[in-house]
């Protein structure tokens, strides 16, 4: 990468804190946060797969997921997956040059937020009902 080094540090563009928080901005930040969280969340997935494959520590992991913190973690994990997926679909639509107008992007921002929460709740209700 080319780097221009000057003796006096040049002013940088203003960062997040100087702007009023908007819905599109919040969704942009959340997309990155959920992405990074899912990145490290893969450790949890591999841990669970290994416990299932070797049967060592599986019951301990299961009883952890049975606590309220464990349940919250699983719910949060599935929400992050769904939110990042909806945000990604929003980006794919933008890649075609559509949905970039002020009203459209505001609508899709709210749709991503409301959609991710309601889909996650629905998926868990469905999953727990199917299981009986």
């Amino acid at each position: 990468m080319a780097e221009i080094r000057t003796r006096n540090p040049r002013p940088l563009s203003p960062h997040l804190q100087v702007y009023r928080l908007t819905m599109t901005m919040a969704m942009s930040i959340l997309h990155r946060i959920t992405g990074a969280a899912l990145y490290f969340g893969t450790i949890l997935f591999v841990w669970w797969l290994f416990a299932a494959a070797t049967s060592r520590g599986f019951e301990a992991l299961n009883s952890f997921f049975d606590t309220w913190f464990g349940q919250l973690m699983l719910f949060g994990y599935s929400w992050a997956l769904i939110h990042h997926m909806l945000g990604g679909i929003r980006h794919l639509v933008w890649d075609t040059g559509r949905g970039l107008g002020p009203a459209e992007r505001e609508f899709s921002a709210w749709a991503t937020m409301v959609g991710s929460i309601s889909l996650t709740v629905m998926v868990w209700i469905l999953g727990l009902t199917l299981r009986g």
Partner: peptide, 12 residues
Amino acid sequence: VYLLVTLAGRSH
């Protein structure tokens, strides 16, 4: 996600 919600808490 389907696997996650159907398998969470199930026996080994």
